[in-house]
């Protein structure tokens, strides 16, 4: 089975954000980046399928030079080759603009399966995988927890998460796109051996012209929505922040819960 896994680089979860002057983007200089967590779950599923059924796993990411960290890590975890979509034209796209670029990278290949995470932690579109499937004309299943492959029929059977403690089992013909939910299987760490081997693996950089695309067909220009200002969220409640050391804060809190609110 030939599997493509799409991985996005996002700021670390505990990041503190500073905005640029017009508030249109966050300043990157103080940020540390990591791989989007649900995309790592997608890669883990891809590697497990390869171990079981053979084949090849390609890791794909889109972004500036720093994105190579995501791809090197994917290779060290066990992906066979990496594709880096690089160039200013790709940047600041919405799900549509990004999916156009990925679809073009997929077109000349013969992948059986494309896996992405359910959503990114930064822009949280939760739709790049689905848009991609529609552009490719492939069936899609989102929020997937388990994948079973039927070699004889060339179909996959997946368990999807629905709301309120409900799951559904669905069957799809290949090729297909799946978006993977977190928690399916524990994400493996790159081993020292993996890191050494990663250095010898294929790492391709593709630009807009390599993909045969025009600059207008990807990224911010192609986006179907316009992003305006970033703002600090409004508080829904007047939160009483309790100061002091651990003991003092704990005593103050309990005092308020007992005497002011009466909930304990």
């Amino acid at each position: 089975m030939r599997i493509l896994t799409c991985l996005k680089q996002v700021p670390e979860r505990d990041s503190r954000y500073k905005l640029n002057q017009d508030g249109s983007s966050v300043l990157e200089e103080d940020l540390v980046f990591e791989t989007n967590e649900s995309d790592l779950y997608a890669l883990e599923e891809a590697l497990r399928l390869k171990e079981k059924f053979g084949g090849e796993v390609t890791a794909l990411s889109l972004g500036p030079d720093r994105v190579s960290k995501v791809l090197r890590n994917a290779l060290a975890m066990g992906a066979d080759r990496a594709v880096h979509l690089k160039g200013a034209e790709f940047e600041r796209g919405d799900a549509w603009g990004t999916a156009q670029a990925i679809a073009a990278a997929i077109a000349p290949e013969d992948y059986d399966l494309v896996l992405t995470g359910v959503q990114s932690e930064d822009m949280a579109f939760a739709q790049t995988g689905v848009v991609l499937s529609q552009l490719l004309g492939w069936p899609c299943a989102t929020i997937v927890l388990e994948i079973a492959f039927e070699d004889q029929t060339g179909t996959i059977e997946v368990k999807r998460e629905l709301e309120s403690n409900v799951l559904e089992r669905v069957e799809l013909p290949l090729p297909a796109v799946l978006t993977i939910q977190s928690g399916s299987h524990p994400i493996r760490y790159a081993t020292l051996r993996g890191i050494m081997q990663a250095k010898k693996k294929e790492y391709r950089v593709l630009t807009v012209s390599d993909l045969g695309l025009s600059a207008e067909s990807v990224g911010e220009v192609a986006a179907k929505v316009t992003h305006h200002r970033l703002l600090a969220p409004e508080r829904k409640k007047q939160t009483v922040m309790i100061e002091g050391g651990a003991e003092e804060a704990a005593r103050t809190l309990v005092d308020k819960l007992v005497n002011e609110i009466g909930v304990i």
Binding site: Y17, V26, D122, A124, V225, H227, H228, L230, L231, P233
Partner: peptide, 11 residues
């Protein structure tokens, strides 16, 4: 966006 730490205006 950004794990709920910022809001974004979109049209």
């Amino acid at each position: 966006v950004f794990n709920g730490k910022l809001n974004l205006e979109v049209s």
